[in-house]
């Protein structure tokens, strides 16, 4: 681990929904151009942690966040941090592919438009993003088709294209393959590995094989806490904690 540059980190983070504490004393950092997998049983708080990196919890009135989140040394929850700017810099791909009920073209154009990208530049960016997400060849002749007509895997790749079109620094992926068939899953995984060149990726997954295939680092969470984090290979083959070992060996979860 030489010269790895930390782009995103969370320190001493606690998070509550109402009176229920979901995240406890989270300390974590993410190196630039790496893929980190968050794993752990359902309800362990991994999605909650993921969504706190682009302040999606702002939408839930009963969520309360404590601690420090830093994106390139800027505090994510600072008063002068614009949440819309932040979400452009920290993009998100959701569990269920959620293209807008608009055309394929409009799905990507929307984010560009609201972020003030000039019209003259958009066509090239849209084409670039679709190519980057390996869906261009499948949709280039029907950009005006409703995005909802695409297959599940195509929809998810379109959602990734929508995210990368904004050139974010970090991409958050919340179980992006959980609703996809194995072949589509494989395509998305290949895509994730390719995107690593330009982006930092944090992926929540229930699929242990997936974590091992795509992630450089793996973080194991349990009951709102980080139990162990490290190189993916170590976490899966040589964990320090008994709990981690039991989980990755499939003994619970």
């Amino acid at each position: 681990m030489v010269d790895e540059q930390i782009i995103l980190s969370a320190q001493q983070v606690n998070l509550w929904f109402g009176s229920k504490q979901i995240l406890k004393n989270i300390d974590i950092s993410f190196a630039k151009n790496s893929v980190t997998a968050l794993i752990g049983p359902s309800g362990c708080g991994k999605s909650t942690l993921l969504r706190s990196f682009n302040r999606m919890h702002d939408l839930s009135p009963d969520a309360r966040v404590e601690g420090q989140f830093l994106l390139d040394k800027q505090n994510l929850y600072a008063k002068d941090m614009s949440v819309t700017q932040l979400r452009r810099r920290v993009g998100m791909v959701f569990q269920k592919a959620n293209p807008f009920p608009k055309s394929i073209y409009e799905n990507i154009n929307y984010g560009l438009k609201i972020n003030g990208v000039p019209k003259s530049e958009r066509d090239a960016i849209i084409e670039g993003a679709l190519k980057e997400s390996y869906i261009w060849d499948e949709v280039k002749d029907e950009l005006n088709k409703p995005a909802t007509r695409l297959s599940g895997g195509q929809q998810q790749r379109l959602c990734i294209a929508r995210t990368v079109a904004l050139r974010p620094e970090v991409i958050l992926m919340d179980e992006p393959c959980s609703a996809l068939d194995p072949l589509s899953t494989l395509k998305i995984e290949e895509l994730i590995i390719k995107l690593k060149k330009d982006y930092t990726i944090i992926i929540v997954t229930h699929n242990m094989q997936q974590a091992q295939r795509v992630a450089d680092k793996t973080v194991f969470m349990y009951m709102g806490e980080i139990i162990e984090s490290g190189n993916t290979h170590d976490i899966f083959n040589n964990p320090n904690k008994e709990l981690t070992n039991n989980y990755v060996k499939g003994k619970f979860g």
Binding site: L59, M92, N98, G111, N115, R162
Partner: peptide, 20 residues
């Protein structure tokens, strides 16, 4: 999920309401 997608690309509440 539509609204989340919109917020996810940096849209404000008003933009999300009007355009999504």
């Amino acid at each position: 999920t539509y609204k989340e997608a919109s917020y996810g690309v940096g849209a404000t509440k008003w933009e999300t309401l009007l355009k999504v």
